[in-house]
Simulated assay, not measured.
Amino acid sequence: MTVDTHHHLWDLDVRDQPWMTGPEMDPLRRDFRPADLQAALRGTSVDATVLVQTVADPDETPEMLVLAETVDRIAAVVGWVDLTAKDARERIGRLQTHPSGGWLRGIRHQVEDEADPDWLVRPDVLAGLAAVEDAGLIYELLVRPHQLPAAIKAVGQFPQLTFVLDHCAKPPVAGGELEPWASRIRALAAYPNVVCKLSGLVTEDEWAAQPDPSRLRAWAEVVLDAFGPGRVMFGSDWPVCLLAASYTEVLGIAKDLTSGLTDTERTAIFDATAREIYNL
């Protein structure tokens, strides 16, 4: 059994995806619906997935909750709430009391798009994180390397809140420079309440060079060494991964990058840790 901790769905007739800019995003500029997900999963060992938000739109999360209620294999939802809103606590509460609110496991914001590298430690954001903690949810960190120092500070203020780092903080794989990303990853991993998704690496490399596990190995080894296999989870980042590799290729790359681990360690990465973190 395998849990995919990170994928998306969207219908462009319902909602625009403003992050799709430039002709290089053309492969993604179409609808990706549940039937497309089921087709991508066909023939794989994936039996449960986590559906993750894509836009800062309060209407998206309730729609995802309904999908989790009705679509086979979607087992959890990571939604969006405006953490800076004075009523963030009430907004989270409304999602949890939604008829399908039981599928909500976490909250995420596209911090990577924020101009302020210290956005995560603004007082209003910290108040929002406190609301996430009080609601019993996890918080997913979508940050880039230069935002990791703020992420480290925020994590340190909430030792009881589980944080999940998305896409290994989007390291500069194509550029080949491990530092300062690697040192910051180790500093973040020093906090036991942080878990990291082994996801998104293929799209941080040169897309035309994919799929090639050898180009990603050094980055994966930093993550595995820093967090340990028990705090790493597989995520496909489908359909964004299609810019560089197919679903089955991304799954195969992840298995290749973890091939030197024990069976128990690989079970943690591909199954057990995700079931614990997302309460599946």
Rank of each mutant, 00 (worst) to 15 (best):
A274Q: 01
G93N: 09
A88K: 02
D134N: 09
A190R: 11
G200P: 15
D87R: 04
L243F: 00
H109N: 15
A115L: 13
P239A: 01
F158G: 05
E177I: 13
E90A: 14
V14P: 14
G156W: 13
D26F: 00
F234D: 04
E206H: 07
T84P: 08
E177L: 14
E114N: 06
E221D: 15
E24T: 03
V240G: 11
A39E: 15
A88I: 01
D118M: 02
I152V: 15
D36C: 08
A76E: 03
T84Q: 11
D4E: 09
A274M: 07
M1W: 12
E177K: 14
I185A: 02
N279V: 14
T258G: 05
V202H: 05
D31I: 08
T267F: 10
M233I: 11
V202I: 07
A182Q: 06
I269C: 00
W10I: 07
V132I: 07
W19G: 08
E114A: 11
I107M: 11
D36N: 06
A150H: 12
H167W: 07
T97N: 04
P171D: 12
T2C: 06
F234S: 05
E221W: 03
D118F: 06
V222D: 11
P99K: 08
L224R: 03
G175S: 04
A226S: 12
V46Q: 04
V55Y: 01
L141V: 02
L165Y: 15
V195N: 07
E90M: 06
L243A: 05
A189Q: 12
E114K: 01
E69N: 07
G93T: 07
L216K: 07
E69R: 13
D72C: 09
Q53E: 15
G260K: 01
S214D: 15
Q17P: 09
E179T: 06
V195C: 06
R266M: 03
G156L: 04
S100H: 11
I253W: 14
V125G: 13
Q147Y: 01
W19T: 12
L243P: 15
F234E: 06
P18Q: 02
S214P: 10
H98E: 09
L280R: 04
P171R: 01
A88W: 09
P159T: 00
D87L: 10
C168W: 01
G93W: 11
